[in-house]
Design a protein around this nucleic acid. Sequence first.
DNA 1: AACTGCTGTTAAGATAGTGTTAAGAAATGA
DNA 2: TCATTTCTTAACACTATCTTAACAGCAGTT
Lengths: 231, 231
Amino acid sequence: MNTKINILLIEDDKSICSYITAFLSGNGYRVITALSGKEGVSLAASFCPDVILLDLGLPDIDGCDVLRQLRSWSSISVIVISARVEEQDKVMALDLGADDYITKPFGPAELMARIRTSLRHSHSAMPGRVYRAAGLEIYFDKRMIYMEGSEVHLTQIEYQLLSLLAENSGRVLTYKFIMNTIWGPYTDGNNQILRVNMANIRRKIEKNPAQPQYVFTEIGIGYRMRENESV
Amino acid sequence: MNTKINILLIEDDKSICSYITAFLSGNGYRVITALSGKEGVSLAASFCPDVILLDLGLPDIDGCDVLRQLRSWSSISVIVISARVEEQDKVMALDLGADDYITKPFGPAELMARIRTSLRHSHSAMPGRVYRAAGLEIYFDKRMIYMEGSEVHLTQIEYQLLSLLAENSGRVLTYKFIMNTIWGPYTDGNNQILRVNMANIRRKIEKNPAQPQYVFTEIGIGYRMRENESV
DNA sequence: AACTGCTGTTAAGATAGTGTTAAGAAATGA
DNA sequence: TCATTTCTTAACACTATCTTAACAGCAGTT
């Protein structure tokens, strides 16, 4: 399964194209570009992107017409990018079914934040962060854990603990930090409860808890989780 | 029944308030204003608006905190209004769950277009949707539920609850979120009524309520419904 | 060998969370 | 109005979870 988000960029200015493509691909998105409205509509149909970035100033078809055509058969999120700041342009695009309207110039961080918001709205292609290593998968959005494809049930604290480690996979988290994060700051220096929980987690996810594959002990320091392979 | 759209405006500047209120009411919206963040959060709870317009520069609480508080129990559309044009402000607000971010100054037509877009997003009622898993079928448009082909009668609340879970099948919905969605925000932290309804639902749709196949309990968190297989 | 410091494991009591039932209140409809 | 259904609340049994304690194992040190 491929979890990359697909973005269709409809934009005739090649330098803007390569600029946007560069930082979006650099952030894990797959970007496909269309240099004209016609091409854009047809690519939207064949590639089924999760989000479309549509520049209004296209050479062949008016951007609003592209939007109209898209909306006649599709409800893919469309973010309009435009140099026009006039209110009536925005109103028209939004009422034609655009999900957002950004005026140039804009920064890459804002664009990506607006893409995330659009994905959230579309509700379908929510990426959902995932931890994956060997047979273990953690879906943070669903709060679900699978081992070799079958569901693993963890208690509340066990889940908090494992996801804390997974979100910081590859790094050692000190006992103190973990205790502080999960049990709060008013704990004595005793890690007993942490050890018990770790043993329970290992019994559930490790084939041989004595030789762990996922959560490693750094004696005197803390725990470290095997690096996430899904990035 | 009243079909007016309710808008909550959280904004401390009274002149902006009356300006926005004026043209929104003039266009058929019902507007309620809150002059502080605190008041805004509490009005959001009691008033259950369709859209919230949130100014980030509030006197008492930081706008982002207001957003954070709202998002902890609600998924009402929030359009952030701000004088700050810095990219990082936009990114933060959007990633905290804002649906849109408008920078001052803006025109009334644009604001209304963005409100319409937000409303479109929140009405995710797609026609002819179906939930299907094992022997259970839910037809959202007809409000009908079948178990192994024969009709199952659910009461109003039972149906709301089950369809809420079905629409979010595969992910855990917290007790807080469910309570808030169905019984409104003024509930104490007691889930008793939710448990009773869940027991009733299970008696109707599960073969063995003690070992549910459709609605699972995530102890300490909430409920999760078996993934929809009709997609 | 015995000691020390640290970690893993197990078990049992305490606690909190959940399911179930039933009875009265409230709403609905004839 | 009465009858019926639905909603809410309370009580209680049951289960899962959390916490604590006791002990076993291991490595390094004296």
